[in-house]
Design a protein around this nucleic acid. Structure first.
Length: 526
RNA sequence: GAGGGUGUAGCUCAGUCGGUAGAGCAACGGACUUUUAAUCCGUAGGUCCAGGGUUCGAGCCCCUGCACCCUCACCA
Protein backbone atom coordinates (compact mmCIF):
# COMPACT_ATOMS: atom_id res chain seq x y z
CA UNK A 1 0.00 0.00 0.00
CA UNK A 2 1.18 3.52 0.74
CA UNK A 3 4.74 4.05 1.80
CA UNK A 4 5.24 4.24 5.53
CA UNK A 5 6.82 7.48 6.59
CA UNK A 6 10.53 6.97 6.33
CA UNK A 7 13.01 8.32 8.78
CA UNK A 8 13.99 11.39 6.76
CA UNK A 9 10.38 12.46 6.52
CA UNK A 10 10.02 12.08 10.26
CA UNK A 11 13.23 13.97 10.83
CA UNK A 12 11.95 16.87 8.75
CA UNK A 13 9.08 17.25 11.18
CA UNK A 14 11.26 17.16 14.27
CA UNK A 15 11.42 20.78 15.42
CA UNK A 16 15.15 20.46 16.12
CA UNK A 17 15.87 19.16 12.64
CA UNK A 18 13.62 21.79 11.08
CA UNK A 19 15.46 24.55 12.92
CA UNK A 20 18.85 23.28 11.79
CA UNK A 21 17.57 23.07 8.24
CA UNK A 22 16.45 26.70 8.41
CA UNK A 23 19.81 27.65 9.85
CA UNK A 24 21.41 26.05 6.80
CA UNK A 25 19.11 28.02 4.50
CA UNK A 26 20.06 31.24 6.27
CA UNK A 27 23.70 30.42 5.53
CA UNK A 28 22.74 29.72 1.93
CA UNK A 29 21.42 33.27 1.72
CA UNK A 30 24.92 34.43 2.58
CA UNK A 31 24.03 35.39 6.15
CA UNK A 32 25.68 34.30 9.36
CA UNK A 33 23.08 32.53 11.52
CA UNK A 34 25.07 33.63 14.56
CA UNK A 35 24.99 37.32 13.79
CA UNK A 36 27.40 40.10 14.59
CA UNK A 37 27.69 43.48 16.24
CA UNK A 38 24.57 45.64 15.97
CA UNK A 39 25.10 49.35 16.57
CA UNK A 40 22.68 52.21 17.22
CA UNK A 41 20.21 49.88 18.76
CA UNK A 42 16.97 51.13 20.34
CA UNK A 43 15.66 49.40 23.41
CA UNK A 44 11.96 48.55 23.37
CA UNK A 45 11.43 50.86 26.34
CA UNK A 46 13.00 53.70 24.33
CA UNK A 47 10.63 52.97 21.43
CA UNK A 48 7.69 53.23 23.81
CA UNK A 49 9.02 56.57 25.04
CA UNK A 50 9.23 57.84 21.46
CA UNK A 51 5.74 56.86 20.32
CA UNK A 52 4.63 60.47 20.88
CA UNK A 53 6.82 61.41 17.89
CA UNK A 54 4.55 59.50 15.50
CA UNK A 55 2.50 61.84 13.33
CA UNK A 56 0.19 61.85 10.32
CA UNK A 57 2.01 63.82 7.64
CA UNK A 58 -0.31 64.91 4.85
CA UNK A 59 0.71 65.40 1.26
CA UNK A 60 0.48 69.16 1.76
CA UNK A 61 3.28 68.80 4.30
CA UNK A 62 1.20 69.46 7.38
CA UNK A 63 1.71 67.01 10.19
CA UNK A 64 -0.95 66.31 12.78
CA UNK A 65 -0.71 64.13 15.86
CA UNK A 66 -2.36 60.74 15.85
CA UNK A 67 -5.58 60.34 17.84
CA UNK A 68 -5.89 57.76 20.59
CA UNK A 69 -6.23 54.65 18.46
CA UNK A 70 -7.09 52.46 21.39
CA UNK A 71 -10.45 54.18 21.94
CA UNK A 72 -13.20 51.60 21.60
CA UNK A 73 -14.80 51.52 18.19
CA UNK A 74 -12.32 53.96 16.68
CA UNK A 75 -11.77 53.39 12.96
CA UNK A 76 -8.23 54.43 12.01
CA UNK A 77 -8.80 53.83 8.27
CA UNK A 78 -11.80 56.14 8.35
CA UNK A 79 -9.76 58.74 10.24
CA UNK A 80 -7.02 58.55 7.61
CA UNK A 81 -9.40 59.20 4.73
CA UNK A 82 -11.07 62.00 6.70
CA UNK A 83 -7.73 63.70 7.27
CA UNK A 84 -6.53 63.62 3.72
CA UNK A 85 -3.92 61.52 1.96
CA UNK A 86 -0.60 61.21 3.67
CA UNK A 87 1.50 58.80 5.65
CA UNK A 88 2.53 58.02 9.16
CA UNK A 89 5.88 59.47 10.03
CA UNK A 90 7.86 58.41 13.02
CA UNK A 91 11.43 57.96 14.11
CA UNK A 92 13.49 55.19 12.56
CA UNK A 93 14.53 52.65 15.17
CA UNK A 94 16.65 49.52 15.28
CA UNK A 95 15.31 46.94 17.69
CA UNK A 96 16.85 43.58 18.54
CA UNK A 97 15.49 40.75 20.61
CA UNK A 98 13.87 37.34 20.80
CA UNK A 99 10.84 36.32 18.75
CA UNK A 100 8.09 35.51 21.22
CA UNK A 101 5.11 35.25 18.84
CA UNK A 102 4.67 35.19 15.12
CA UNK A 103 1.53 35.79 13.06
CA UNK A 104 2.14 34.83 9.47
CA UNK A 105 -0.44 36.30 7.09
CA UNK A 106 1.11 35.12 3.84
CA UNK A 107 2.87 38.14 2.38
CA UNK A 108 2.77 39.85 5.74
CA UNK A 109 4.23 38.70 9.06
CA UNK A 110 3.76 40.19 12.50
CA UNK A 111 6.38 39.36 15.11
CA UNK A 112 6.31 40.04 18.81
CA UNK A 113 9.89 40.84 19.72
CA UNK A 114 11.14 40.90 23.30
CA UNK A 115 14.22 42.49 24.71
CA UNK A 116 14.91 42.87 28.41
CA UNK A 117 12.94 46.09 28.62
CA UNK A 118 9.71 44.81 27.07
CA UNK A 119 7.95 43.62 23.94
CA UNK A 120 7.17 45.37 20.68
CA UNK A 121 5.48 44.33 17.46
CA UNK A 122 7.38 44.14 14.16
CA UNK A 123 5.50 44.51 10.85
CA UNK A 124 7.18 42.65 8.00
CA UNK A 125 5.59 43.20 4.59
CA UNK A 126 6.93 41.52 1.49
CA UNK A 127 6.86 44.77 -0.48
CA UNK A 128 8.53 46.66 2.36
CA UNK A 129 11.49 44.39 3.09
CA UNK A 130 11.93 42.98 -0.43
CA UNK A 131 12.08 39.40 -1.65
CA UNK A 132 15.37 38.64 0.11
CA UNK A 133 14.25 40.13 3.39
CA UNK A 134 10.94 38.30 3.21
CA UNK A 135 12.64 35.02 2.38
CA UNK A 136 14.75 35.53 5.52
CA UNK A 137 11.65 36.28 7.60
CA UNK A 138 10.12 32.99 6.45
CA UNK A 139 13.08 31.24 8.12
CA UNK A 140 12.39 32.84 11.51
CA UNK A 141 11.28 30.54 14.33
CA UNK A 142 9.93 31.31 17.77
CA UNK A 143 12.85 31.95 20.07
CA UNK A 144 15.27 33.18 17.40
CA UNK A 145 17.20 36.36 18.07
CA UNK A 146 16.58 38.83 15.26
CA UNK A 147 16.54 42.55 14.67
CA UNK A 148 14.58 44.99 12.56
CA UNK A 149 15.19 48.50 11.34
CA UNK A 150 12.22 50.60 10.42
CA UNK A 151 9.87 53.44 11.22
CA UNK A 152 7.94 53.48 14.42
CA UNK A 153 4.22 53.66 13.78
CA UNK A 154 0.77 52.47 14.73
CA UNK A 155 -1.26 49.69 13.18
CA UNK A 156 -4.93 50.12 12.50
CA UNK A 157 -5.68 48.61 15.88
CA UNK A 158 -3.43 51.10 17.65
CA UNK A 159 -0.50 48.88 18.50
CA UNK A 160 2.93 50.45 18.55
CA UNK A 161 4.85 48.74 15.76
CA UNK A 162 8.18 48.85 13.99
CA UNK A 163 7.41 48.77 10.27
CA UNK A 164 10.49 46.89 9.13
CA UNK A 165 12.47 48.09 6.15
CA UNK A 166 15.41 45.82 6.91
CA UNK A 167 15.86 42.60 8.86
CA UNK A 168 18.87 41.11 10.63
CA UNK A 169 19.51 37.66 12.00
CA UNK A 170 21.42 37.31 15.27
CA UNK A 171 21.15 33.75 16.58
CA UNK A 172 19.17 30.61 15.85
CA UNK A 173 17.46 28.81 18.68
CA UNK A 174 18.09 25.14 17.93
CA UNK A 175 15.86 23.78 20.68
CA UNK A 176 12.05 23.63 20.35
CA UNK A 177 10.24 26.57 21.91
CA UNK A 178 8.14 26.12 25.04
CA UNK A 179 4.37 26.58 24.81
CA UNK A 180 3.95 30.08 23.45
CA UNK A 181 1.26 30.98 25.93
CA UNK A 182 1.90 28.95 29.07
CA UNK A 183 5.69 29.11 28.79
CA UNK A 184 7.72 26.72 30.85
CA UNK A 185 5.75 25.82 33.96
CA UNK A 186 7.52 22.68 35.06
CA UNK A 187 9.29 23.94 38.18
CA UNK A 188 12.15 21.53 37.83
CA UNK A 189 12.87 22.61 34.27
CA UNK A 190 12.42 26.28 35.18
CA UNK A 191 15.15 26.04 37.80
CA UNK A 192 17.38 23.71 35.84
CA UNK A 193 17.12 25.76 32.66
CA UNK A 194 16.87 29.23 34.16
CA UNK A 195 17.94 30.68 30.81
CA UNK A 196 14.73 29.37 29.23
CA UNK A 197 12.69 30.44 32.25
CA UNK A 198 14.05 33.99 31.98
CA UNK A 199 13.61 34.08 28.22
CA UNK A 200 10.09 32.69 27.92
CA UNK A 201 8.21 33.19 31.16
CA UNK A 202 6.61 36.56 31.79
CA UNK A 203 7.89 38.49 34.74
CA UNK A 204 10.83 36.26 35.60
CA UNK A 205 13.43 38.63 34.25
CA UNK A 206 11.64 41.51 35.99
CA UNK A 207 11.86 39.74 39.33
CA UNK A 208 15.59 39.33 39.01
CA UNK A 209 16.05 42.88 37.76
CA UNK A 210 14.10 43.98 40.83
CA UNK A 211 16.44 41.89 42.95
CA UNK A 212 19.36 43.78 41.47
CA UNK A 213 17.65 47.10 42.17
CA UNK A 214 17.01 46.09 45.77
CA UNK A 215 20.63 45.10 46.36
CA UNK A 216 21.82 48.27 44.64
CA UNK A 217 19.52 50.35 46.81
CA UNK A 218 20.83 48.68 49.96
CA UNK A 219 24.40 49.44 48.94
CA UNK A 220 23.42 53.00 48.07
CA UNK A 221 21.71 53.61 51.41
CA UNK A 222 24.70 52.29 53.33
CA UNK A 223 27.23 54.13 51.17
CA UNK A 224 25.31 57.37 51.69
CA UNK A 225 25.50 56.72 55.40
CA UNK A 226 29.27 56.46 55.30
CA UNK A 227 29.48 52.68 55.45
CA UNK A 228 32.30 51.01 53.58
CA UNK A 229 31.82 47.77 51.70
CA UNK A 230 34.33 44.99 52.29
CA UNK A 231 34.80 41.36 51.34
CA UNK A 232 35.51 38.86 54.08
CA UNK A 233 36.80 35.35 53.53
CA UNK A 234 34.33 32.63 52.60
CA UNK A 235 36.71 29.85 53.66
CA UNK A 236 36.92 29.67 57.42
CA UNK A 237 38.82 27.50 59.80
CA UNK A 238 36.12 28.06 62.41
CA UNK A 239 32.61 28.72 61.08
CA UNK A 240 31.15 31.08 63.64
CA UNK A 241 28.66 33.90 64.01
CA UNK A 242 25.48 31.87 63.62
CA UNK A 243 23.86 28.68 64.81
CA UNK A 244 24.15 26.46 61.76
CA UNK A 245 26.00 23.45 60.44
CA UNK A 246 28.71 24.40 57.95
CA UNK A 247 29.85 22.77 54.74
CA UNK A 248 33.20 21.04 55.13
CA UNK A 249 35.90 21.38 52.53
CA UNK A 250 39.63 20.91 52.33
CA UNK A 251 42.72 22.74 51.12
CA UNK A 252 45.06 20.34 49.35
CA UNK A 253 48.42 22.13 49.45
CA UNK A 254 48.06 22.99 53.12
CA UNK A 255 46.32 19.67 53.83
CA UNK A 256 43.96 21.68 55.97
CA UNK A 257 40.29 21.14 56.74
CA UNK A 258 38.17 24.22 56.04
CA UNK A 259 34.53 25.16 56.35
CA UNK A 260 32.46 27.51 54.23
CA UNK A 261 31.30 30.54 56.17
CA UNK A 262 27.88 30.52 57.82
CA UNK A 263 27.92 34.24 58.69
CA UNK A 264 29.86 37.40 58.01
CA UNK A 265 29.90 38.67 61.56
CA UNK A 266 33.20 37.79 63.18
CA UNK A 267 35.43 39.14 60.42
CA UNK A 268 33.48 42.37 60.07
CA UNK A 269 33.89 42.96 63.80
CA UNK A 270 37.63 42.36 63.47
CA UNK A 271 37.61 45.22 60.96
CA UNK A 272 35.92 47.48 63.47
CA UNK A 273 38.70 46.69 65.92
CA UNK A 274 41.02 47.85 63.16
CA UNK A 275 39.24 51.16 62.89
CA UNK A 276 36.86 50.64 60.00
CA UNK A 277 34.07 52.30 61.90
CA UNK A 278 31.21 51.53 59.53
CA UNK A 279 31.54 48.34 57.48
CA UNK A 280 29.20 46.13 55.58
CA UNK A 281 29.28 43.12 53.34
CA UNK A 282 26.65 41.75 51.01
CA UNK A 283 27.79 38.22 50.68
CA UNK A 284 26.98 34.61 50.20
CA UNK A 285 26.85 32.33 53.22
CA UNK A 286 26.53 28.56 53.18
CA UNK A 287 24.56 26.48 55.61
CA UNK A 288 24.43 22.72 55.49
CA UNK A 289 20.79 22.48 56.49
CA UNK A 290 17.51 21.38 55.00
CA UNK A 291 16.07 22.83 51.81
CA UNK A 292 12.60 24.38 51.78
CA UNK A 293 10.65 27.15 50.03
CA UNK A 294 12.38 29.53 52.43
CA UNK A 295 15.80 27.88 52.63
CA UNK A 296 18.55 27.43 50.07
CA UNK A 297 21.94 26.03 51.14
CA UNK A 298 23.64 29.18 49.87
CA UNK A 299 21.97 32.51 50.37
CA UNK A 300 22.84 36.17 50.49
CA UNK A 301 23.16 38.14 53.69
CA UNK A 302 23.73 41.75 54.42
CA UNK A 303 25.66 42.38 57.60
CA UNK A 304 26.66 45.85 58.68
CA UNK A 305 28.31 47.26 61.76
CA UNK A 306 28.32 50.80 63.04
CA UNK A 307 30.78 51.91 65.68
CA UNK A 308 29.32 53.97 68.52
CA UNK A 309 25.81 52.84 67.63
CA UNK A 310 23.58 50.28 69.30
CA UNK A 311 20.63 48.10 68.37
CA UNK A 312 18.35 51.11 68.26
CA UNK A 313 20.52 52.78 65.63
CA UNK A 314 20.23 49.51 63.71
CA UNK A 315 16.44 49.58 63.95
CA UNK A 316 16.33 52.99 62.28
CA UNK A 317 18.80 51.82 59.65
CA UNK A 318 16.84 48.63 58.96
CA UNK A 319 13.69 50.64 58.39
CA UNK A 320 15.49 52.96 56.02
CA UNK A 321 17.11 50.09 54.08
CA UNK A 322 13.74 48.48 53.48
CA UNK A 323 11.86 51.65 52.67
CA UNK A 324 14.58 52.78 50.25
CA UNK A 325 14.51 49.36 48.58
CA UNK A 326 10.76 49.63 48.10
CA UNK A 327 11.20 53.10 46.62
CA UNK A 328 13.81 51.65 44.26
CA UNK A 329 11.46 49.09 42.72
CA UNK A 330 8.27 51.11 43.15
CA UNK A 331 4.80 49.87 43.89
CA UNK A 332 4.22 51.57 47.22
CA UNK A 333 4.47 50.61 50.87
CA UNK A 334 1.29 48.54 50.97
CA UNK A 335 2.21 45.22 49.42
CA UNK A 336 0.52 41.88 48.87
CA UNK A 337 2.19 38.62 49.73
CA UNK A 338 0.48 35.25 49.45
CA UNK A 339 -2.94 36.72 50.15
CA UNK A 340 -1.69 38.89 53.02
CA UNK A 341 -1.32 42.63 53.05
CA UNK A 342 1.87 44.03 54.50
CA UNK A 343 2.15 47.71 55.38
CA UNK A 344 5.75 48.84 55.15
CA UNK A 345 4.93 52.44 56.02
CA UNK A 346 7.49 53.49 58.62
CA UNK A 347 7.86 53.46 61.54
CA UNK A 348 7.47 49.71 62.02
CA UNK A 349 5.90 48.41 65.20
CA UNK A 350 8.15 47.57 68.14
CA UNK A 351 7.31 45.16 70.93
CA UNK A 352 9.35 43.45 73.57
CA UNK A 353 9.97 39.73 73.58
CA UNK A 354 8.61 39.46 77.11
CA UNK A 355 5.38 41.33 76.33
CA UNK A 356 4.72 39.27 73.20
CA UNK A 357 5.46 36.12 75.12
CA UNK A 358 3.04 37.05 77.87
CA UNK A 359 0.36 38.12 75.39
CA UNK A 360 0.48 34.86 73.48
CA UNK A 361 0.77 32.47 76.40
CA UNK A 362 -0.55 34.25 79.47
CA UNK A 363 2.65 33.14 81.17
CA UNK A 364 5.12 35.48 82.82
CA UNK A 365 8.36 34.76 80.92
CA UNK A 366 10.44 35.65 83.97
CA UNK A 367 8.80 32.87 85.98
CA UNK A 368 10.97 29.84 85.13
CA UNK A 369 8.63 27.34 86.76
CA UNK A 370 5.56 28.69 84.97
CA UNK A 371 7.44 28.58 81.68
CA UNK A 372 8.47 24.99 82.34
CA UNK A 373 4.89 23.97 83.14
CA UNK A 374 3.63 25.70 80.02
CA UNK A 375 6.27 23.97 77.89
CA UNK A 376 4.97 20.63 79.07
CA UNK A 377 1.48 21.48 77.84
CA UNK A 378 3.02 22.02 74.40
CA UNK A 379 4.85 18.69 74.62
CA UNK A 380 8.21 20.43 74.36
CA UNK A 381 10.94 18.27 75.81
CA UNK A 382 12.50 20.18 78.66
CA UNK A 383 15.04 17.75 80.06
CA UNK A 384 18.43 19.28 80.60
CA UNK A 385 17.61 22.46 78.71
CA UNK A 386 18.42 25.94 79.82
CA UNK A 387 15.23 27.85 80.70
CA UNK A 388 16.01 30.42 78.01
CA UNK A 389 16.15 27.67 75.39
CA UNK A 390 12.76 26.43 76.50
CA UNK A 391 11.42 29.97 76.56
CA UNK A 392 12.63 30.46 73.04
CA UNK A 393 11.09 27.24 71.78
CA UNK A 394 7.77 28.38 73.15
CA UNK A 395 8.28 31.79 71.57
CA UNK A 396 9.04 30.25 68.19
CA UNK A 397 6.00 28.01 68.39
CA UNK A 398 3.42 30.39 69.85
CA UNK A 399 4.53 33.85 68.80
CA UNK A 400 6.65 33.95 65.66
CA UNK A 401 4.07 32.59 63.23
CA UNK A 402 1.52 35.12 64.44
CA UNK A 403 3.76 38.12 63.74
CA UNK A 404 2.35 39.67 60.57
CA UNK A 405 4.57 42.67 60.95
CA UNK A 406 6.66 44.31 60.00
CA UNK A 407 7.44 44.27 63.70
CA UNK A 408 10.65 44.64 65.64
CA UNK A 409 10.81 42.15 68.49
CA UNK A 410 13.23 43.62 71.00
CA UNK A 411 15.10 42.60 74.14
CA UNK A 412 15.79 38.88 74.00
CA UNK A 413 16.76 36.51 76.81
CA UNK A 414 20.50 36.97 77.15
CA UNK A 415 21.66 33.39 77.23
CA UNK A 416 20.49 32.64 73.68
CA UNK A 417 22.51 35.62 72.41
CA UNK A 418 26.19 34.89 73.03
CA UNK A 419 27.48 37.73 70.83
CA UNK A 420 25.22 40.41 72.25
CA UNK A 421 25.71 43.05 74.90
CA UNK A 422 23.46 42.76 77.93
CA UNK A 423 21.29 45.55 79.22
CA UNK A 424 23.20 47.53 81.81
CA UNK A 425 20.34 47.42 84.30
CA UNK A 426 19.35 43.82 83.55
CA UNK A 427 22.01 41.30 82.53
CA UNK A 428 19.36 38.68 81.81
CA UNK A 429 18.18 40.69 78.81
CA UNK A 430 20.21 41.15 75.64
CA UNK A 431 20.00 44.29 73.50
CA UNK A 432 18.81 42.52 70.42
CA UNK A 433 15.96 42.79 67.94
CA UNK A 434 14.63 40.63 65.21
CA UNK A 435 12.40 41.96 62.45
CA UNK A 436 9.49 39.66 61.64
CA UNK A 437 7.23 39.81 58.62
CA UNK A 438 4.57 37.14 58.10
CA UNK A 439 6.31 34.90 60.58
CA UNK A 440 9.56 35.16 58.67
CA UNK A 441 12.67 36.37 60.41
CA UNK A 442 13.97 39.01 58.06
CA UNK A 443 16.62 40.79 60.10
CA UNK A 444 18.51 40.26 63.30
CA UNK A 445 20.51 42.92 65.08
CA UNK A 446 22.11 43.70 68.38
CA UNK A 447 24.27 45.92 70.41
CA UNK A 448 27.54 44.13 69.86
CA UNK A 449 29.33 42.53 72.75
CA UNK A 450 32.81 44.07 72.90
CA UNK A 451 33.98 42.76 76.29
CA UNK A 452 36.63 40.16 75.36
CA UNK A 453 36.59 38.39 78.72
CA UNK A 454 32.82 38.01 78.72
CA UNK A 455 32.93 36.94 75.06
CA UNK A 456 35.50 34.24 75.89
CA UNK A 457 33.40 33.06 78.80
CA UNK A 458 30.27 32.86 76.63
CA UNK A 459 32.16 30.88 73.99
CA UNK A 460 33.25 28.44 76.65
CA UNK A 461 29.86 28.06 78.26
CA UNK A 462 27.81 25.79 76.08
CA UNK A 463 24.14 26.16 76.67
CA UNK A 464 22.72 23.12 78.32
CA UNK A 465 20.57 21.11 75.93
CA UNK A 466 22.32 22.43 72.83
CA UNK A 467 24.75 20.46 70.73
CA UNK A 468 27.90 22.41 69.99
CA UNK A 469 27.07 22.59 66.29
CA UNK A 470 23.66 24.07 67.10
CA UNK A 471 25.17 26.85 69.10
CA UNK A 472 26.26 30.28 67.97
CA UNK A 473 28.88 30.18 70.67
CA UNK A 474 31.73 28.47 68.88
CA UNK A 475 35.11 29.37 70.28
CA UNK A 476 37.14 31.57 67.98
CA UNK A 477 40.37 32.40 69.84
CA UNK A 478 41.57 34.94 67.30
CA UNK A 479 38.26 36.77 67.47
CA UNK A 480 38.55 37.03 71.25
CA UNK A 481 42.13 38.28 70.87
CA UNK A 482 40.84 40.87 68.41
CA UNK A 483 38.35 42.11 70.98
CA UNK A 484 41.23 42.51 73.43
CA UNK A 485 42.65 45.09 71.03
CA UNK A 486 39.44 47.05 71.78
CA UNK A 487 36.36 47.18 69.60
CA UNK A 488 34.24 50.29 69.92
CA UNK A 489 30.71 49.91 71.25
CA UNK A 490 28.65 49.23 68.16
CA UNK A 491 25.39 48.18 66.64
CA UNK A 492 25.30 45.32 64.16
CA UNK A 493 22.66 44.12 61.72
CA UNK A 494 22.11 41.01 59.64
CA UNK A 495 19.46 41.01 56.94
CA UNK A 496 18.42 38.13 54.68
CA UNK A 497 18.51 39.56 51.17
CA UNK A 498 16.70 36.64 49.53
CA UNK A 499 13.78 36.88 51.92
CA UNK A 500 13.54 40.62 51.51
CA UNK A 501 13.41 40.12 47.75
CA UNK A 502 10.74 37.45 48.20
CA UNK A 503 8.58 39.79 50.26
CA UNK A 504 9.02 42.75 47.93
CA UNK A 505 8.48 40.78 44.72
CA UNK A 506 5.68 38.60 46.08
CA UNK A 507 7.48 35.32 45.44
CA UNK A 508 6.53 32.49 47.77
CA UNK A 509 9.58 30.38 47.07
CA UNK A 510 13.18 31.39 47.66
CA UNK A 511 13.93 29.45 44.48
CA UNK A 512 12.07 32.11 42.52
CA UNK A 513 14.49 34.81 43.68
CA UNK A 514 17.74 32.86 43.45
CA UNK A 515 18.90 32.54 39.86
CA UNK A 516 20.49 29.13 40.29
CA UNK A 517 19.18 27.36 43.38
CA UNK A 518 20.85 24.12 44.40
CA UNK A 519 19.45 21.13 42.50
CA UNK A 520 20.30 17.51 42.34
CA UNK A 521 22.28 16.72 39.19
CA UNK A 522 20.18 16.13 36.11
CA UNK A 523 19.40 12.53 35.35
CA UNK A 524 20.60 11.30 38.72
CA UNK A 525 17.50 9.15 38.77
CA UNK A 526 18.70 6.72 36.14
C1' G B 1 14.99 12.86 57.82
C1' A B 2 9.03 11.80 57.99
C1' G B 3 4.26 12.11 55.50
C1' G B 4 1.36 13.47 51.09
C1' G B 5 1.14 14.72 45.75
C1' U B 6 3.02 14.68 40.74
C1' G B 7 5.84 12.33 36.46
C1' U B 8 1.91 10.72 29.39
C1' A B 9 4.23 14.05 22.26
C1' G B 10 9.26 19.48 21.91
C1' C B 11 5.78 22.59 25.58
C1' U B 12 0.97 22.76 28.52
C1' C B 13 -2.23 19.03 29.91
C1' A B 14 -6.63 15.11 29.38
C1' G B 15 -6.89 9.82 29.63
C1' U B 16 -13.68 6.90 32.43
C1' C B 17 -14.29 0.31 35.00
C1' G B 18 -7.66 -2.71 33.44
C1' G B 19 -9.29 -3.69 26.78
C1' U B 20 -5.60 -0.61 19.96
C1' A B 21 -2.61 6.56 23.19
C1' G B 22 -5.76 11.97 23.11
C1' A B 23 -6.25 17.59 22.72
C1' G B 24 -4.22 22.61 22.31
C1' C B 25 0.26 24.96 21.10
C1' A B 26 5.00 24.11 18.58
C1' A B 27 6.71 21.35 13.85
C1' C B 28 5.79 20.07 8.44
C1' G B 29 2.63 21.18 3.52
C1' G B 30 -1.08 24.75 1.65
C1' A B 31 -4.37 29.78 1.61
C1' C B 32 -4.26 34.88 3.28
C1' U B 33 -0.66 42.58 3.00
C1' U B 34 -2.93 45.73 9.52
C1' U B 35 -2.67 40.66 12.76
C1' U B 36 -3.11 40.38 18.54
C1' A B 37 -2.45 33.22 21.99
C1' A B 38 -4.39 35.51 14.08
C1' U B 39 -7.66 32.22 11.34
C1' C B 40 -8.76 28.14 7.93
C1' C B 41 -7.51 23.16 5.30
C1' G B 42 -4.14 19.03 5.55
C1' U B 43 0.25 15.89 7.56
C1' A B 44 3.37 13.83 10.97
C1' G B 45 4.93 13.17 15.97
C1' G B 46 4.85 8.44 22.05
C1' U B 47 10.82 4.01 25.94
C1' C B 48 3.12 6.71 29.16
C1' C B 49 10.05 8.56 34.68
C1' A B 50 13.04 3.65 35.40
C1' G B 51 13.01 -1.52 36.91
C1' G B 52 10.25 -5.64 38.63
C1' G B 53 5.34 -8.04 39.67
C1' U B 54 -0.17 -9.37 39.17
C1' U B 55 -3.21 -10.33 34.70
C1' C B 56 -5.36 -13.33 28.63
C1' G B 57 -4.30 -8.01 28.61
C1' A B 58 -1.28 -2.46 32.57
C1' G B 59 -0.61 4.68 31.14
C1' C B 60 -4.22 2.81 34.95
C1' C B 61 -3.42 -2.20 40.12
C1' C B 62 1.05 -3.87 43.52
C1' C B 63 6.47 -3.45 44.92
C1' U B 64 11.30 -0.98 44.47
C1' G B 65 14.12 3.12 42.82
C1' C B 66 14.70 8.31 40.83
C1' A B 67 13.28 13.46 40.23
C1' C B 68 10.27 17.59 41.35
C1' C B 69 6.30 20.02 44.36
C1' C B 70 3.67 20.61 49.17
C1' U B 71 3.53 20.00 54.65
C1' C B 72 6.58 19.01 58.89
C1' A B 73 11.55 18.71 61.23
C1' C B 74 16.56 21.35 61.12
C1' C B 75 17.37 26.57 59.91
C1' A B 76 17.53 32.32 58.20
Amino acid sequence: MNELPNSTENDAKDPRVARREKMRQIEEQGLDPWGSRFDDRSLVSECRDRQTEIQWTREDGNAIPLPDLTTEGFDFRQWKSDNGPGEQTGPTVRVAGRIMLSRDKGKLIFLTLRDWTGEIQIFIGKNQVGDDGFALAKLFDLGDLVAAEGRLGMTNTGELTVFASRLYFHAKMLEPAPDKHAGLTNTDLRQRMRYADLAFNDGVIQTFLDRTKIVKSIRHTLDQDGFCEVEGPTLHTVAGGAAARPFATHHNALDMPLTMRIALELHLKRLMVGGMERVYEVGRVYRNEGISPRHNPEFTMLECYQAYGDYRSMMDLTERLIVDAIDAIGGGYIREFDGNTIDFTPPFKRASYADLFHEATGVNPADDQAVLDYAKTLHITTDGKHPDVIRNEIFEEKVEDTLTGPIFVIDYPASICPLTKRKQDNPAIAERFELFILGMELANAYTELNDPDLQEKLFKTQLEGLEEEDSMAKMDHDFVRALRYAMPPAGGLGLGIDRLVMLLTGKKSIRDVILFPLLRPEGSGS
